[in-house]
Lab assay of single mutants.
Amino acid sequence: VSKLITEALSVSQERVGMSLVALKKALAAAGYDVEKNNSRIKLSLKSLVNKGILVQTRGTGASGSFKLS
């Protein structure tokens, strides 16, 4: 899941990052079952932020906008 998230964010052209909703849409378009794996998406977002791979530009927790650091 982390690999899919970083790939989706690297393609994004948004300056402020990608919102959680837009990220879920991009994952669904890539063929990932978002409804079934919603908790996995949130956990991997939090772990990527803690590792310093992603930066959360808006919001708290697993909601808001994210971009690559």
Results as ranks from 00 to 15, higher is better:
1 V>Q: 00
1 V>S: 02
1 V>K: 03
2 S>T: 08
2 S>K: 15
2 S>H: 02
2 S>C: 03
2 S>D: 15
2 S>P: 02
2 S>N: 14
3 K>S: 05
3 K>F: 01
3 K>W: 01
3 K>G: 02
5 I>D: 00
5 I>M: 04
5 I>T: 00
6 T>M: 09
6 T>N: 12
6 T>L: 06
6 T>D: 05
7 E>A: 00
7 E>Q: 03
7 E>T: 04
8 A>Q: 01
8 A>T: 03
8 A>V: 09
9 L>T: 13
9 L>Y: 09
10 S>L: 05
10 S>M: 07
10 S>I: 04
10 S>C: 03
11 V>K: 14
12 S>H: 04
13 Q>G: 06
13 Q>S: 06
13 Q>C: 06
13 Q>M: 04
13 Q>K: 13
13 Q>H: 06
13 Q>P: 03
14 E>N: 02
14 E>D: 05
14 E>P: 02
14 E>K: 03
15 R>Q: 08
15 R>V: 03
15 R>M: 04
16 V>Y: 11
16 V>I: 11
16 V>P: 03
16 V>M: 10
17 G>R: 12
17 G>Y: 03
18 M>Y: 02
18 M>C: 08
19 S>W: 08
19 S>N: 10
19 S>T: 11
19 S>V: 09
20 L>F: 13
20 L>C: 06
20 L>R: 02
20 L>N: 01
21 V>H: 14
21 V>T: 15
21 V>P: 06
21 V>K: 15
21 V>C: 07
22 A>K: 07
22 A>H: 08
22 A>M: 09
22 A>F: 03
22 A>W: 09
22 A>I: 01
23 L>S: 00
23 L>Q: 00
23 L>T: 00
23 L>W: 02
24 K>P: 00
24 K>V: 02
24 K>G: 02
24 K>L: 03
24 K>Q: 05
25 K>R: 08
25 K>D: 07
25 K>T: 04
25 K>A: 06
25 K>V: 01
26 A>I: 07
26 A>D: 00
26 A>N: 03
26 A>E: 05
26 A>P: 00
26 A>S: 09
26 A>H: 07
27 L>A: 02
27 L>P: 00
27 L>F: 06
27 L>K: 00
27 L>C: 03
28 A>S: 09
29 A>C: 10
29 A>R: 13
29 A>M: 10
30 A>V: 08
30 A>C: 08
30 A>Y: 05
30 A>H: 04
30 A>P: 04
31 G>Q: 05
31 G>N: 04
32 Y>F: 10
32 Y>Q: 09
32 Y>K: 14
32 Y>N: 09
33 D>L: 12
33 D>Q: 14
33 D>I: 09
34 V>S: 06
34 V>K: 09
34 V>F: 07
35 E>N: 11
35 E>K: 14
35 E>M: 08
36 K>F: 01
36 K>V: 02
36 K>L: 04
36 K>Q: 08
36 K>M: 05
36 K>G: 05
38 N>W: 15
38 N>D: 01
38 N>L: 14
39 S>C: 01
39 S>A: 13
39 S>Q: 14
40 R>P: 03
40 R>E: 12
40 R>T: 10
41 I>T: 02
41 I>A: 03
41 I>M: 07
41 I>D: 01
42 K>V: 12
42 K>P: 01
42 K>A: 09
42 K>R: 09
42 K>T: 11
43 L>E: 15
43 L>S: 13
43 L>F: 06
43 L>H: 13
44 S>F: 05
44 S>Y: 05
44 S>T: 14
44 S>Q: 10
45 L>I: 03
45 L>S: 01
45 L>G: 02
45 L>V: 08
45 L>F: 04
46 K>F: 03
46 K>I: 08
47 S>F: 03
47 S>C: 14
47 S>Y: 06
47 S>N: 08
47 S>I: 01
48 L>A: 01
48 L>Y: 01
48 L>P: 00
48 L>T: 01
48 L>H: 00
48 L>I: 02
48 L>Q: 01
48 L>F: 03
49 V>L: 14
49 V>Y: 08
49 V>D: 03
49 V>W: 02
49 V>A: 04
50 N>K: 09
50 N>E: 13
51 K>T: 06
51 K>E: 13
51 K>Y: 00
52 G>Y: 03
52 G>R: 03
52 G>N: 06
52 G>F: 07
53 I>K: 10
53 I>G: 04
54 L>A: 05
55 V>N: 09
55 V>E: 13
56 Q>P: 12
57 T>Q: 12
57 T>L: 12
58 R>T: 14
59 G>N: 07
59 G>T: 11
59 G>C: 12
59 G>A: 08
59 G>V: 10
60 T>P: 13
61 G>E: 12
61 G>Y: 06
61 G>Q: 10
61 G>T: 11
61 G>D: 14
61 G>K: 13
62 A>N: 14
62 A>M: 11
62 A>Q: 13
63 S>T: 13
63 S>A: 12
63 S>P: 12
63 S>K: 12
63 S>C: 02
64 G>W: 10
64 G>F: 11
64 G>K: 13
64 G>M: 15
65 S>Q: 14
65 S>G: 13
65 S>P: 10
66 F>C: 04
66 F>A: 13
66 F>V: 10
66 F>E: 12
66 F>R: 10
67 K>G: 09
67 K>P: 06
67 K>Y: 07
67 K>A: 12
68 L>E: 09
68 L>V: 06
69 S>P: 09
69 S>R: 08
